[in-house]
Design a protein around this nucleic acid. Structure first.
Lengths: 128, 128
DNA sequence: CCCAGACATAGACGGCTGTCAATAGCTAGG
DNA sequence: CCTAGCTATTGACAGCCGTCTATGTCTGGG
């Protein structure tokens, strides 16, 4: 047999880097490159990434970003994307729930704004 | 009616920033914050993000990163994640297809390695 | 030549997701 | 009030996704 690349060693559950409550909320995200991600950290980061990993939602973020004052209401967003208003509202809700947008209802309109720091956090988690 | 926030203007399809073939492959990714993403750019970036937006694949990336020499074979990855070998192979293929991993078959083993620049590109596209 | 082992592929299946039409809730004006 | 308009919610449906089992493919050793 050739020099097996240390196969198996299934008795070393090293994925439990944060087994207890240690350091789970210290920074918010362990940079991907430092040490093997635990299950919870990976799930949380994946949750945020899933919110961004959609063409429509990416375009929504950029549209809001580019709009006057960095904010936009639903009625500004349906036309350029060619989708119905409920669909846009749905995507905006996903982004708000992920902490990537803030919602500010003024009168009849709901103004959405990009949370820069959230995007920065995601980017930082990827590059380390 | 209150001062309507410039509703509609559906006749200005500004989403076609790269309507022709202009500047589509110049940089690879328009930073999210510069101008409204076109449909194609959004789809491509979303495709890459979808590859990362999964807990298992995030852990795979970090495991490979943390392994000796920055590379690992399938047999090193199944145990710590508690998934079957075909599932791991499937995820690795997704990551390779997205350009986030390279595959190097040496003898019987297939060694995977993280493409740093790909992750950096994604991060750069998010922060601008 | 055959076997063992590492990895990939195919097929199946439950669950999630993006979209729409229809409807409900809210706010401002008359 | 009553109405008009902006937004959110609900329900439905097609399509994709992550996982598994079973099987195929290739490599190295005896």
């Amino acid at each position: 047999m050739v020099a097996s690349p240390r196969r198996g060693d299934p008795t070393t559950p090293r994925q439990l880097s944060g087994g207890g409550t240690a350091g789970l909320l210290t920074g918010c995200c362990t940079p991907l490159a430092r040490e093997p991600l635990g299950a919870e950290e990976a799930a949380r980061l994946a949750g945020t990434l899933k919110a961004i990993a959609d063409p429509t939602r990416l375009r929504l973020l950029s549209l809001i970003y580019a709009h006057d004052g960095g904010e936009a209401c639903v009625c500004n967003l349906t036309a350029p994307l060619g989708l119905t208003q409920p669909t846009i509202s749905h995507h905006l809700k996903v982004l708000v729930d992920a902490g990537l947008l803030t919602r500010d209802k003024r009168g009849v309109w709901a103004y959405y704004r990009v949370v820069d720091s959230a995007l920065a956090h995601v980017a930082a988690a990827l590059t380390g």
